[in-house]
Amino acid sequence: MNTLLSVSQDIALGKDARMFFKVAAYLFLLSVVGGLTDFLTLSYTSLVIVLTIPALYERFEEHIDRYVMMGYRKLHQLYVKLDVECVSKVRKWILEKQKLS
C-alpha cells in the first residue's frame, strides 16, 4: 500500500512525467468509453471479455502467438522504415536551414 501511495505521490508532484501521461491517457480513454455506454453494459461486457479471452487464448495459443509475432515483425519493420525516412527528412531540413543561415 505504501508503494502505491508513493508512486501516486510521485505522479501527482510531477516527478515521473512519463507515468503521469500514461495515467492521463488511460483516464481519458476510460472517460470516452464511459461516455459511450452506461455502467451496467460496460460491466457485463467487461465480465464476458475477462472470462472468455483467457480460455480462447489457452485453446488457440499456438495460432495466436504465430500471428502476433508476424504482426510484431511487420510493425517493427514499419517503425524502422518510418524512423529512417523521418530521420533523413529531418537531416535534410537541418542541412537546408544551415545553408540558408
Rank of each mutant, 00 (worst) to 15 (best):
R91H: 05
D83N: 15
L5R: 08
E85L: 10
M69Y: 06
E85D: 11
S8T: 06
A55P: 05
Q98T: 01
T41W: 13
L42A: 07
V7N: 03
G34P: 12
R73E: 12
L13A: 00
S8W: 13
N2V: 07
R73G: 02
L29Y: 12
K15M: 00
I53D: 02
G35C: 05
G71S: 08
T45F: 10
P54F: 01
K92Y: 04
I94K: 13
L100W: 08
K89Q: 10
L5N: 08
L47F: 12
V7G: 00
R18E: 10
K22S: 07
L42Y: 02
D83F: 15
L40V: 14
V80R: 12
K74D: 04
V32C: 05
L95R: 12
E85M: 09
F39Y: 11
M1P: 11
S31E: 03
I94P: 08
K92M: 04
H76C: 09
I49M: 02
T37N: 05
V50F: 08
E58P: 01
S46G: 03
A17E: 14
A17R: 15
Q9F: 04
R59P: 03
A17K: 15
C86S: 13
R91K: 11
L40I: 14
F39I: 09
K92V: 05
M19L: 15
D16N: 07
M1T: 01
